[in-house]
């Protein structure tokens, strides 16, 4: 530091950000602002004032929620357990059946004429919400949790295939070549070269989907596909805010516990 003189400091200018980069930042800002303006009216954002003019209704809501009624807690808890069980089976099926589809939609493993059709099929599974699938399965297999399991299964098949195949596409190809060089078959290359590399990520994604599925399963009951959603919906519709509040507390606590547990497991898996 002692060798540096005041003159050295004086001669060094702070470089200006290039015009291109500044223009780029402005452009991004303008695009976002444009999107917001474009969506303002269709989304009825002009009604923000109602939040204040109708505050009385809100207060009534809040009063009900502040005194949750846990009289039927055992029923709520039993339904919450069913909700988790729906998520368990939905996740399990989507992972088991998602793995082959994930492999088939990985461009570094399969040829394009397999990858493209499989990917489009998986897109279709993903594009349609669980609730919509639940409505369809309620018609097909009747009311109850099984329809919920099927709804989660089909929707998550698409999600799992995409997440898992992204992991497969990011593998290191060199150990796989080593296996190919021993005369192994294509399937054996996948089993011994690809899957060991992606296992930790797959476990992590699988657990993450389980968390998400428990959350999704809490609303499946609204359309009659089992779980705590049905009770929730009935209580909301009959303006039983105290009971609704109790159910929501149970959902929040359960989801928090499951998220914490699954996070712990994910860290351990990697």
């Amino acid at each position: 530091m002692t060798s540096q003189t005041a003159a050295d400091h004086a001669t060094i200018d702070v470089p200006r950000e290039p015009l291109r980069e500044r223009a780029y930042k402005w452009a991004i800002g303008l695009v976002i602002a444009g999107l917001l303006v474009w969506s303002w009216h269709p989304a009825e954002m002009f009604r923000w004032i109602n939040l204040f003019t109708d505050a009385g209704n809100m207060a009534e809501f809040a009063r009900g929620f502040l005194s949750p009624n846990f009289r039927d807690w055992d029923i709520y808890l039993a339904d919450m357990v069913v909700t988790v069980q729906i998520a368990v089976w939905g996740t399990f099926l989507s992972v088991v059946f998602g793995i082959p589809f994930a492999i088939m939609s990985s461009s570094n493993v399969c040829p394009v004429w397999i990858v493209q059709p499989v990917r489009r099929l998986m897109d279709a599974c993903r594009a349609i919400n669980e609730i919509v699938f639940a409505l369809l399965f309620v018609v097909a297999v009747g009311l109850g949790p099984f329809a919920g399991v099927m709804a989660l299964f089909i929707h998550n098949l698409g999600v799992v295939a995409k997440l898992f195949s992204e992991a497969v596409e990011a593998i290191d190809p060199r150990p796989v070549e080593g296996i190919r060089a021993t005369g192994a078959s294509k399937l054996q290359e996948i089993i011994f070269g690809v899957i060991p590399q992606v296992t930790p990520l797959w476990i992590s994604f699988g657990l993450y989907r389980f968390e998400t599925n428990v959350r999704s399963a809490t609303v499946l009951g609204i359309v009659g596909a089992g779980g705590i959603g049905q009770l929730l919906w009935e209580n909301i519709r009959s303006f039983a805010y105290a009971e609704t509040a109790a159910i929501m507390v149970i959902i929040v606590v359960s989801i928090t516990l499951i998220d914490m547990l699954s996070q712990r497991l994910r860290k351990w898996a990697i």
């Binding site: 290191d172 060199r174 150990p175 070549e177 080593g178 296996i179 190919r180 060089a181 021993t182 005369g183 011994f192 070269g193 060991p196 590399q197």
Partner: peptide, 15 residues
């Protein structure tokens, strides 16, 4: 291939 062994510069093994 099964009668030819190959050793690469690196990354031979599945870690």
């Amino acid at each position: 291939r099964s009668s030819v062994g190959v050793v690469f510069q690196q990354f031979n093994l599945v870690g």
